[in-house]
């Protein structure tokens, strides 16, 4: 006679298919989409397009090549401004952290630059550079540089002097102290320098493109608004959000987990 299996065994073969956390996450997203769709029925489409309509528009723009066309300029400008700014910012942060005089000179200017609103930079960039590639790249650069710098500086300042002393008493050569003491303890900070600057770079890129550019996600969003194509505003926003999540969660978090495994 075949006895029935105990109830808990029925799902034992599929622990990954039945994942309550994931399930709840999905339900949460679906609920938001449902509410959005529901509310959108109450208002005209130019005020609040529903998710279905937005998906339609997304597909249309994707097939027309419009998304690709506007996405790449933004990616290119962000990456350009960001990479120059982070390389410089990290370099300066290390220099300031290891040289007190330099720190004294640069501290006040950096603090002031950090307090300037991104929009001010965007206006100034248009005045200085007009509608050129240089304009958004410049804004991204000035916004991310101090962020990368300050994070790196914090990293250098928190290096444990006692570990450096330990290495010195063991007569470790200088390159070894850098490799085995300074770098590993600064690395997590450099990482947060990279991720935090990246987040700011994307967001400011959109603003900079609205004011000083004739292509890119920001520009496309502005144009869509001018023609009251609210569904397109939603699409551009979503494109931006996906881009942001892919870079931040996908790429950065993975690399970070790979590097900082001792914690």
């Amino acid at each position: 006679m075949i006895r029935s299996l105990p109830a808990y065994n029925r799902f034992a073969f599929a622990p990954r298919l039945y994942n309550p956390t994931l399930l709840r996450n999905v339900v949460g997203v679906l609920a938001i989409l449902g509410i959005w769709q529901g509310i959108s029925l109450l208002y005209p489409s130019y005020l609040l397009p529903g998710p279905v309509e937005v998906a339609h528009t997304f597909l249309r723009l994707l097939l027309q090549g419009e998304i690709e066309q506007q996405l790449w300029p933004t990616v290119y400008r962000t990456v350009a401004g960001y990479s120059v700014a982070t390389v410089l910012g990290i370099g300066l942060g290390i220099a300031m952290g290891s040289n007190k005089y330099l720190l004294d000179f640069v501290r006040v200017p950096v603090t002031i630059v950090m307090a300037i609103p991104g929009l001010s930079w965007a206006f100034l960039a248009v005045i200085w550079f007009g509608l050129t590639e240089a304009s958004p790249i410049f804004v991204i650069f000035v916004i991310t540089l101090p962020i990368a710098l300050v994070n790196t500086l914090k990293g250098v300042q928190q290096v444990d002097r006692r570990l450096v002393e330990m290495a010195r008493t063991h007569r470790a050569p200088y390159w070894m102290i850098v490799r085995d003491v300074y770098l590993p303890s600064i690395l997590p900070y450099i990482f947060s320098a990279l991720t935090v600057s990246m987040a700011f770079a994307w967001k400011i890129a959109i603003v900079a493109e609205m004011l000083g550019s004739s292509s890119g996600l920001g520009y496309a969003m502005l144009k869509a608004r001018d023609y009251i194509k609210t569904d397109e505003v939603f699409v551009w926003t979503l494109v931006f959000v996906f881009l942001f999540l892919i870079v931040d969660n996908g790429i950065f978090r993975t690399i970070e987990r790979m590097i900082v495994k001792w914690q």
Partner: peptide, 20 residues
């Protein structure tokens, strides 16, 4: 103590030798 938190036990023990 002053162990290097990012190095494994064996690499910590070997640190002085590596320095030499």
């Amino acid at each position: 103590l002053r162990l290097l938190p990012w190095k494994s036990v064996i690499d910590n023990v070997a640190f002085g030798l590596a320095a030499r």
